[in-house]
């Protein structure tokens, strides 16, 4: 028994942050310059009281509205986030109740960022193929904006808050290929939420120092963009080759490449390095920003809407980033 993604829905936070808005906060740049630098026109940011699981709920409700899948048939939920409701219990348990799903289901959190979609897909596939369940509702939701310092241009111009839901169901067709994983924790500090948990919690001095930024009570996201790019250029080509090898495919057999929509610069650099033709490369960052684990399902959904993915198409998906962590596979449509 194999499995297939039967439906994807996503939800972007309702507050739009345009380049004009950003230019007001960062008068050293014009809206046009911000676009030139980032290739992003708008991002979506939450308000303090709407967090990752709320965005996942919105995406899941949309999935049930726009598809024939029913809440009562869900057998397993995996919630992928780096901004959980609580340290304990698992947010997936809260989501079972909020979404009014049956109680005899599996519910697990999967703390994962930029490689979250491909990681969750791999785990979901394993659950179905090992006969533990017939379907898995994959849920994603993150609010990076809540940990971005208001004066951090690089992060605020890049990240978006969003949620996604994907229905993974058993199928005769082997639609999800073999999955490749990788991790290198020596790169952890290159994309990192400082002061965010037990190791190094927020204290009074921190709150005081960050008073003007609202205290930064959830910690502060910090990024070393240069090292992230170096990591991506080193690991992503290797990841792509490993995915092809593990699935007995040649580079030319891939119809479309969906990479985590990290930044325009990273996507362009990967495209150049792998010599991917323009028509085979997915860019969905301009109108959405970097939506972390939502970026690949969002891009797949948009490409499906545009009829860019034809029946029988082989689509390579690859997530990479925070951790460092990376994973990917090939989907056959």
């Amino acid at each position: 028994m194999s499995c297939k993604i039967k439906h994807i829905s996503y939800h972007l936070s309702s507050n739009v942050l345009t380049n004009e808005d950003l230019a007001k906060d960062f008068p050293e740049y014009s809206a046009q310059e911000i676009y030139k630098k980032t290739g992003i026109k708008q991002r979506f940011v939450t308000t303090r009281n709407i967090i990752g699981s709320d965005l996942a709920v919105a995406a899941a409700e949309q999935l049930f509205r726009e598809s024939s899948f029913k809440k009562e048939n869900v057998e397993f939920i995996l919630f992928c986030t780096e901004t959980p409701d609580y340290i304990a219990p698992a947010t997936a348990c809260l989501l079972q109740s909020r979404l009014r799903l049956k109680t005899n289901i599996g519910a697990l959190d999967l703390p994962s960022g930029c490689s979250g979609f491909t990681n969750a897909l791999g785990v979901g596939k394993a659950l179905i193929e090992s006969g533990q369940c017939d379907n898995v509702l994959l849920l994603f939701g993150d609010t990076p904006s809540l940990t971005c310092h208001p004066k951090d241009f690089e992060l605020r111009s890049l990240f978006s808050d969003a949620g996604a839901a994907a229905w993974l169901d058993k199928s005769e067709q082997e639609a999800i290929g073999n999955v490749v994983y990788g991790a290198d924790g020596s790169g952890a500090k290159n994309l990192f939420v400082d002061r965010s948990c037990f190791r190094n919690p927020v204290d009074e001095a921190w709150l005081k120092t960050h008073k003007e930024a609202g205290g930064m009570p959830f910690g502060q996201l910090e990024m070393n963009g240069l090292n992230i790019l170096t990591f991506a250029l080193k690991e992503v080509p290797k990841l792509v080759n490993a995915i092809l090898e593990k699935n007995n495919l040649a580079f030319e057999q891939i119809d479309l490449f969906f990479f985590h929509q990290a930044s325009r610069t990273i996507l362009r650099s990967i495209q150049k390095k792998l010599r991917i033709p323009d028509e085979k490369m997915a860019y969905y960052i301009e109108n959405n920003g970097n939506t972390i684990s939502v970026s690949i399902p969002l891009a797949l959904k948009e490409a499906l809407k545009e009829s860019r993915i034809k029946e029988g198409a082989k689509v390579l998906i690859a997530g990479f980033g925070i951790g460092f962590s990376w994973s990917g596979t090939v989907i056959t449509y």
């Binding site: 630098k37 980032t38 963009g225 240069l226 170096t230 362009r268 650099s269 390095k273």
Partner: peptide, 14 residues
């Protein structure tokens, strides 16, 4: 700017 720094690093790599 920092973005160009990224682009130059990528250029040299590629």
């Amino acid at each position: 700017n920092s973005m160009l720094a990224l682009i130059i690093i990528a250029l040299i790599d590629i």
